[in-house]
Amino acid sequence: MKLKKEGNLTQTTNSNDLKSSDGLKSLKDSKALKVCYWFTNISFYLSCFAAILVVVLLGVNMFGGVRTLHYMQLPIIVTYEDITDTLPLDQTKSDELVPVVGFERVKLDVSTYENMAQMMWLPLILLLGVIYIIYLFKIFLKTVRLNSPFDTDNPKRLKLIGYLVTAGGPIVGITSNIYARIFIHLIDLPGASIEIPTEMYPFTIFLGLMIVVIAQVFEIAVKMKLEQDLTV
């Protein structure tokens, strides 16, 4: 309770000190920060719009009886063996099915698949996770713009972003793998071998852990700032 009281005191006493600081003044007027803030805002609203759109599509698919989901992309590896000998090059790429050698996404016609609407729930949950990450980052940037980057809640926000980003890569990788396994039987490519790779997106794991470390640095900075602010 006492600590919270002190924290509040800190914020009230500090705003004046921070405003007079030239370094933070320039941070507030930083163009890069402005661009980042607006970019985050636009991403946030676009993601929200996408989530609403997915919910509407799900509703139409599940209850409206109209099929709106016709295609989905699967992360699979398609390798042709003798197909170039039997088919002319222009026939290897059709409008509905575009198989490419190497790790590429195959556009797959799933309009005949009955449970398509139910399959969209997981991507929707993932999308909500992304929206939450952007929302947390948006609040973080807002505090930075208000000249209080060492807000007591910022380390928690950064840590949460870090954990979500770390977990996000493997979750997306595993989800894609599960989906590919479900829909692989719909792919009918003569003379081609299909593999389902499990990509764990190591870069996102590294990025997430980096954010967690930065959050810990912020935690120390918040404590140091509190000490500094309560030094008369």
Binding site: K5, E227, T231
Partner: peptide, 11 residues
């Protein structure tokens, strides 16, 4: 802050 005994240090 000093009067209310919330100060951590005094210069």
């Amino acid at each position: 802050v000093l009067k209310k005994n919330h100060a951590r240090a005094i210069r």
